[in-house]
Amino acid sequence: MRSTYNNNSSKVARFISYNCKSVKRSVDCIRNLCTKADIIALQETWLYPCDLHFLGTIHPDFAYIGTSAVDTSTGPMRGRPHGGVALLWRKGAFQSVSVISCDSVRLAAIRITTGWNRYVKEVHERARLSFQEWSLHGKPSQGPLYTKMVESRRDFKLKLKWCQNHQEQIKMDMLSTHHLNKNFSKFWKCTKKLSPEPGRSVNVDGLNEPSAIANHFKNIFRVKPPQRHAKGRPEKYKKC
């Protein structure tokens, strides 16, 4: 499992890669992974093209993209085809997710955009190019290429740290940008994420234990049946 930063909190987005060896046989395990990760990469899904919609039934909070490497257009299958791949990602965990078209059925890809992109894009690009240049020259342990690589990585990490420490400012900037561009659907979506859900009360009339609180409410809302007045009975029905 790997981690990367997301734009919704100081927590990281969790990434899991899993060779499921038939997604239908491993669906319970995949559902369990959905409770622990934000992005799941699946290999060897073994789905027919007509069965790819099954990926959308794994977990209601996850969107999906998948490919089938099983070619059914030529009649009965011969030999051993490739297993197929898929990606699942948590809905609402990222600012936007778009599917990248791939030429091979052995590939599935998505592009994830976070609210930090405009803050770290420039330093990330510089760090990536510096690392590639350093790698192409044999990864020297000293010299100008090594110094450039180290300094660019340090700048990138500092910018990520800045984003972590200024998340509220970044969220307000996103709201302002959406409102300025009159993109009100994204504006209200981001506003909803800022509104915390009401928490549960932990103290009711001095009671803290769940069972005591439940009994307290039961006594308050108890509906007592109306009392019936005893009527006189004939002598033959009266008890001695």
Rank of each mutant, 00 (worst) to 15 (best):
V150G: 00
D51E: 15
Y5P: 08
N203T: 05
F187Y: 05
N165K: 11
I213F: 00
H166I: 05
K148Q: 10
G206Y: 03
H82Y: 15
D155S: 14
R118G: 11
N208A: 06
K238A: 08
V99E: 11
I65Y: 11
F184S: 06
R14F: 02
E151K: 08
F221M: 06
F54Y: 15
W46D: 07
H53F: 13
W46G: 04
N181T: 02
P140V: 00
L207E: 01
G66Y: 10
K21S: 10
R2V: 04
L55Q: 06
V202Y: 10
I65W: 08
P198D: 07
V12Q: 15
M1N: 09
S152H: 04
Y119K: 14
T177H: 11
P60E: 15
P196R: 11
V27N: 01
N19A: 02
N19E: 03
N215K: 13
C20E: 09
G232T: 07
Q169M: 14
W188K: 06
I40H: 14
T74Q: 15
W162F: 09
I30G: 01
V70K: 10
S135Q: 14
R126P: 01
S9G: 14
T72H: 14
A212C: 11
K224N: 07
T147N: 00
E44T: 05
M149S: 03
Y18A: 00
L55F: 11
V120K: 11
I39P: 04
A63Q: 12
L87S: 12
E209L: 07
S9R: 15
S9Q: 14
P76N: 13
L87N: 09
F54W: 12
T113C: 12
V27G: 00
I170W: 10
F221R: 04
S10F: 03
P234R: 07
F15D: 03
I30S: 02
K139F: 06
L207H: 00
H216E: 04
N32C: 06
P234H: 07
Q167E: 11
R14I: 02
L42R: 06
I40F: 12
K159P: 02
S9M: 14
R233K: 08
L107W: 08
R228H: 11
S185G: 02
V202E: 10
T4V: 15
S3P: 04
M172G: 03
R126S: 08
